[in-house]
């Protein structure tokens, strides 16, 4: 076989392209609310794109479009055929295609957020798709969730515990959650937030900004022709409607 370009790297060549941030977590933990909050906080300073992986096709994408936090054209929805975790971990082709479509269409971008469909505690993003990932829990799931661990809780670059305003009502002990998370996360950061009260999720936005800055320092300023897709993705994916 004629090897014209043996690219065995994990993800697309990182040089000069946007940071790809995966946001995962169980159903109802507030992933879409976090994406909206980040768009609100970061939209003024960063060039954004968003890919959603809904169970029902376009629900999250529609929510974000209605929220008006980002240009609707910059949101693409990926269908996952009943298996949201497959689309972010085992077969990431459709998500990569969507990410590169956004970069092609609106590039250069600073940050592309890929929101997973609500799934279980074992769902994590492939390194081929996300450069960094956030896992979102909420306190109403019970304060034992961090202790139970699972790849999402243990390996995500940032663990976000959302809906802290509900803690007294559901009897969740935030100190227990904090201590357990620290124990299983090997020093990686944990942030507590209530997006209902802090509509910009500012602590998370600050962390993301650091990540984007560090990414840019390491891999250079994003530029438009950086899309190193396996296909020269003139990908013509129509925006989900």
């Amino acid at each position: 076989m004629g090897a014209h370009h043996d690219d065995l790297h994990d993800a697309a060549e990182p040089h000069g392209r946007a940071l790809r941030l995966g946001i995962g977590g169980p159903v109802g933990s507030g992933k879409t609310a976090l994406v909206a909050a980040l768009c609100r906080s970061l939209g003024p300073s960063l060039r954004l794109g968003v890919v959603t992986n809904d169970i029902y096709t376009t629900e999250d994408a529609d929510f974000l479009r209605r929220a008006g936090v980002v240009d609707p054209e910059r949101i693409l929805a990926v269908q996952t055929g009943c298996c949201p975790h497959t689309a972010i971990r085992d077969d990431i082709a459709a998500n990569l295609d969507a990410v590169e479509t956004l970069e092609e269409r609106f590039g250069p971008l600073d940050l592309v957020i890929v929101e997973s469909g609500g799934d279980n505690l074992t769902a994590t993003f492939s390194r081929g798709l996300a450069d960094r990932q956030i896992f979102v829990l909420d306190v109403s799931g019970g304060d034992k969730v961090p202790r139970k661990g699972g790849p999402g809780v243990t390996s995500a670059d940032l663990l976000v515990v959302n809906k802290t305003d509900l803690a007294p009502m559901v009897g969740a002990d935030l100190t227990v959650m904090s201590r357990d998370a620290a124990a299983v996360r090997d020093g990686k950061p944990v942030l507590f937030t209530s997006i209902r009260e802090d509509r910009g999720a500012h602590s998370v936005a600050e962390w993301v900004t650091h990540m984007v800055d560090a990414w840019r320092r390491e891999h250079g300023e994003p530029h438009h022709h950086a899309v190193q897709s396996a296909v020269q993705s003139a990908a013509r994916q129509a925006p989900a409607s």
Binding site: C83, T86, D90, D91, A93, D97
Partner: peptide
Amino acid sequence: SRLPAGGHAHS
């Protein structure tokens, strides 16, 4: 079917 080429999302 595990070939990572997006086929899982088509019925």
